[in-house]
Structures are given as structure tokens and as C-alpha cells.
Design a binder for these strands. Sequence first.
DNA 1: ATCCGATTCCCGTTGAATGGGAAGGACCGT
DNA 2: ACGGTCCTTCCCATTCAACGGGAATCGGAT
Lengths: 251, 251
Amino acid sequence: MANSRSGETVTERIVRVLETFDADRTVQTTAEIGRRARLPSSTAHRVVAGLVECGLLERDEEQRVRLGMRLWELALRGSHALRLRQAALPFMERVQARVREHTQLAVLENGETLFVERLSHPHAGANITRIAGRLPLHASSSGLVLLAHGPEELRERVLAGPLEAVSPKTVTDPALLRRVLAGVRRDGVVVAPGTVEAVSTGVAVPVREGRGRVVAALSVVLPRSTPTGPAAEALRSAAAGISAALGARRP
Amino acid sequence: MANSRSGETVTERIVRVLETFDADRTVQTTAEIGRRARLPSSTAHRVVAGLVECGLLERDEEQRVRLGMRLWELALRGSHALRLRQAALPFMERVQARVREHTQLAVLENGETLFVERLSHPHAGANITRIAGRLPLHASSSGLVLLAHGPEELRERVLAGPLEAVSPKTVTDPALLRRVLAGVRRDGVVVAPGTVEAVSTGVAVPVREGRGRVVAALSVVLPRSTPTGPAAEALRSAAAGISAALGARRP
DNA sequence: ATCCGATTCCCGTTGAATGGGAAGGACCGT
DNA sequence: ACGGTCCTTCCCATTCAACGGGAATCGGAT
């Protein structure tokens, strides 16, 4: 941004710095951040110092750096994700009480599945998804719902593009995937056995806002052996409840 | 940041732009943002365009601007707040099931109470707190817990500074407040009737991490007439559970 | 004592950022 | 149709914030 041989904006660099943090890397030294964000050492120190100054980053007991509560606050307080989550949470709890495994809420973001909320039972099975984590659209049950109801242009791009296998059972054949998506639209529910992890089955339904547009996917992750019928029923009624809560918001 | 007569860094301006969003103002025109962030029109348009480019902001159907999912993702995925929240949520649900009013989790941030999570019963009473919302430390029950266990330097500053009344019953007398704080440390719980809203009573307990440091406050908001004993007991056992969950995290 | 890495300070360079102004476009009331 | 208001886009000369190399300092490990 500013000057000298870089060719990037300050904004881009800030994003690159924030990107270096994830669930496995919540605290880092400034030098580490610089390396991962591909910034010269002195630049990294200056940028990080600026972000700390503004509260977007914080320093722990002298030394390392972590994401600041101020960033968390600014990102959430005006966000649509929070509204959606708040509307959905009570219904997710109800699903959770019945199904006793993993219940999660996901949205479409930049051609991927982004998980917004997740409730887990203490004794629930495997599940690699995380809040604020991503998965490809064609792999997870939530993603299939979002893709099936997403813009046609995106659907065609995904069907054309390379379909990487997340697990051995991931659907990677475009023709088959197209049939699966048609099925999702027809049935209003998708059952995806083993497409993310061999031992789990995902079940997902669409969540619609007032006018019927699909804004999210609600899903549960079950062990492969569990029957999916009751879960699908619980999801369907929860999705209806969330839609009502979203619709009734504005007078 | 860059040049010309401004004297601020780009980073500061970005924060100012993000600050213009809140729960009552989730979408704005670029011109509005510029006005609220005190930026010249052309600068506001350029900065917002840059943030949209990076995904930190998004444009809705041609025109207005809202916080981007990408910002939400970057702020949450490496954040300590998310860890704390995830550890606390199951226990909060248990409290919620028993008390059936509002259950909330708050942390100390920059001399204020910042609310990180909140569960509400459909038929619960009044409650002005919001997720990612703030209240003064001396007013809410959560704040009293955080202040009582916070750094002495902060406590003295708050006791010295002006103690604004949020409601008619807010404790604004330094001597009385000092006694209240001592009581919190002694009893491990605080009951604050009407200090935020005249019709409600807050009950709060400290949440400690592994070594015993207080990292958050867990609270419920009840109608004034409700007895506080059962709530206090539920909170205490939930706080113990959260502490265990936080401590057992690292091997 | 010696290395190695993180961090801080210095400083000359420079182009990204700046912001005023003009022009285009959408909407509204008259 | 027409004038007015407001949002947005484009242009462009100015300039200082940002840049990044390098050297010095600090701190822990060996």
C-alpha cells in the first residue's frame, strides 16, 4: 500500500496477518506472523504494533500476540451471522436434545461451506467441522443443501471444476452430484453417508428466510449405523421454526 | 496513514469504519459510513471499496454495505473468546434449563463488561444486554464479579472515577461499592438487584481457568421477585464445570 | 562465552493514500 | 419536464505514511 516495492494495500496486509491465526494457532510471535503472512520482519513488527494499538490484536504477558476481544466485538455486533445464529440457537438446542449428536448451522460463503454454529453432545461421535471452519460445498451435507439452492452459476462452476474427495465416499462424479442436488431440491433433505468422514453420516435441510430464499443449512452428524429418519424430522421442524423466527423479525 | 493532511493510520480508519456498525445499524450506505466515521466522502468510498475487496465488508443487492462473513470468520476462528464460549456453552444450557430466564457470559475488556454469550428463555423478562454489547463494570452483576477479581490498579481507577448510574439503583457510592466488591470476593457470588434495570436482579459468579485466575463472569438475570438462591447454586456448579473444562484442555 | 532468533531503533526512499472537485446517476416533489 | 438533493464514480496533483534494509539490543539455549 503505502510505498516502496510492495504493490499491496495496507488492508490486504492486515487481512493476511489476521489469516495467520486459526484454531490451532491462537497465539504467535510477531516474527512468526511475519513469516506466515510473507511480510518483511520490520514491516510485520510495524503492522502488528499498529493492530495492537487499535485493539484488533492483543499481547499476552509480554511477548506473543493473539486476536483481540475488540476484533471479536466489532465483527459480531453488527453482523448478520449473529442474527441468524440467535434466531437458530433455540431450535438447534431442541434438535440437539432429541438427536444427541452434533447439530450445526452453515452458510454459503465465497463458494464454500462456512459453519456458523455447532452444538455437540458430550458423547457424540467424530466430527471435523468447527465453528468458523470451512468445507467444500460438494462434500458436506450442509454444503449440498447450500449448493442445491444456490445460484445456478455457482452450481455449474462447481460441477465443472475439480471435485476433490474429502473422504473415499465423497461424491466426485459430476453427473451423480447433479442427481444428488436435484434430489435435495425435490426432497427438502439430504442424507450424505461418509462423504466427509467414513464413519459419519450427515443429514441436512435448508433454512429459509421470510420470502423463501435459502440462507443457511441446518445439519446433524450421526454415526453411520444410526437411522436418519428421526433426525431428518427434527431438522425439518427446526428449520421451519427458524424461518418463522427470521420472518417475524421485521414488522 | 498514507498521506496528505490526516495524521491517522489506515488501520485506525478501518477500525473507525467497522465501529460504525452495530446491532441497530447492520447495513449502511457508504456515504453514511463516511459521515459516522468522520471521513471525507472520496476517502470513505475508497476505504470501503478496499474492505469490500478483501471481504471484510459486503455489498447487498447493489448499494448498501454490511459486515462480511469473512470478517466474522477471521475474528472467530483463532479467538480465545470462542474457546471460552465453547467450554461454557453446555454448562450455560444446564443453568438455562433450571433457571429459565437469561443466562450470560461476560469478560473484562478495556475497563468494561463485554458480553460473550447469552441464552434466553422465550418467556424471560427484560434484559438490555446483548452479545458483543458492553456495560460499565460497576453496574451489572457480571461487571461486579470481574471488577472484584480484576487487577487492583483497575479497581482503584474505577472507584476513583465517576460512577455513572445506569438505573436509579446502580451503586454509585465508592465506599459502598468497595464493600460490595469485598463481599463478592468473600462469598463467591453477587446479587445485584435493579442496578441495570429496575425490574431485574442480576446474580453472577466468577469463572476461573486452570490456575484459579478469573477469566469470565457467569450470570443470570431474574425478575426482582424471584428468589436468588437456586440460581446462585446453579451458577456455582456451572462455573466449576467450566473451570474443569478449561483446565483439562491442555495435556 | 557463543550462537540464534526475536525485537527495537534508525533512516533515506517512494508510491499508496489522500481529498478536493467535477461529473454522472437515481430518486423525489413540484 | 424540471430543479434539487444525495449517493456514487472518476480524475489528478500533492505528500507524508508506509516501507524495508540494516544495525543494535535483548534473551534464551547450548
